[in-house]
């Protein structure tokens, strides 16, 4: 029972992190209609900033998370202004290549500052919660809780506030949104800021149970892509459900099939599902 519960907990933890990363990616896709390959680099930079603020400056874990979210949000906004906005009328291939250029640049900068070594962010809460014969490390519970709060918050922001609705409106119909007076400029900046902040928060939450290194974003971003394809590009519920599906598939696959091949599961799942359903599991509401 406990072993099974641990796998569920593991799946939820992984799923939460993947969902947060995929949410940012899917929001940007809804607005820009490009897969942002640099999103994994935002994730990685977020982890390093938290590591710096919490480690070298000795700040509290939550302070570090907020600083990192703000810093990556600003970075994402700058990249929108300098790179993606000027390229908005070019073929999609050019956006993708520019994003790859940004990815290479950010990785190289991080490596220049902190080196290629592995770092570790100390966990803020090291207690282990017990309930009957079930045990759960506090950090994992924290990740799941924070992710759920963020997802609900984001959903309320997008559905219930005017500012949030402008994002949904622009994703649904760019011209229509502009006609009713929504500034596409503000919306893109806002979307990039949210997506960057989500990536940084996900990275900060994940960092204590994982390692920090320049290439840490690669696998996460690849999986986030798998998730938004499965969930339907631009679809928010799809990103959450997709994240959980991959998280659970990985944690159970690692335990019941093979730990060695756990990273391949997400990709095989995608190949398998897309072979049967080329439109994805949940064809998106926004296209």
């Amino acid at each position: 029972m406990n072993i099974f519960f641990q796998q569920v907990l593991n799946g939820l933890t992984l799923g939460s992190v993947y969902s947060l990363v995929a949410l940012g990616l899917t929001l940007v896709y809804g607005i820009l209609h490009i897969p942002n390959f640099a999103h994994g680099a935002f994730f990685m930079v977020g982890a390093y900033i938290s590591f710096y603020v919490a480690g070298d400056l000795g700040a509290n874990f939550w302070v570090a998370m907020i600083v990192s979210a703000a810093a990556v949000a600003v970075m994402a906004m700058i990249s929108e202004r300098l790179i993606f906005h000027p390229l908005r009328n070019s073929p999609a291939l050019h956006d993708m290549i520019a994003a790859i250029g940004l990815l290479l640049f950010l990785e190289a900068v991080v490596q220049a500052i902190w080196g290629a070594d592995f770092h570790r962010l100390p966990a803020p809460y090291t207690t282990i919660l017990r309930f009957a014969d079930l045990t759960a490390p506090a950090q994992r519970v924290l990740i799941i809780g924070a992710a759920i709060v963020l997802m609900i918050g984001l959903q309320i922001f997008l559905r219930r506030t005017t500012t949030g609705s402008t994002i949904v409106a622009t994703a649904q119909n760019r011209e229509g949104a502009a006609l009713v007076g929504i500034s596409p400029l503000k919306v893109s900046l806002l979307t990039f800021a949210i997506s960057g902040a989500l990536a940084a928060v996900a990275a900060t939450l994940f960092a204590p149970i994982n390692l920090i290194y320049p290439a840490m974003g690669h696998l996460v971003i690849l999986k986030a892509f798998v998730i938004i394809i499965l969930g339907g590009m631009g679809s928010i519920p799809g990103a959450i459900v997709g994240g959980m599906v991959i998280g659970f598939a990985e944690s159970f696959g690692a335990f019941y099939i093979s730990n060695n091949y756990k990273d391949i599961i997400a990709f095989v799942l995608l190949v398998f599902i897309l072979s049967l359903r080329p439109q994805g599991l949940f064809p998106s509401e926004v296209r």
């Binding site: 999609a92 690849l222 892509f225 590009m233 391949i264 990709f267 095989v268 190949v271 897309l274």
Partner: peptide, 28 residues
């Protein structure tokens, strides 16, 4: 045959995954 049923970004990301599967199969 599998990947070309998809278009544009979907195709690119699908093939990205295919590439990663090839890499992991070789490495593992």
């Amino acid at each position: 045959i599998l990947s070309l049923r998809l278009k544009t970004h979907f195709f690119s990301i699908f093939t990205l995954c295919v590439g990663y599967i090839i890499y992991l199969l070789i490495e593992k």
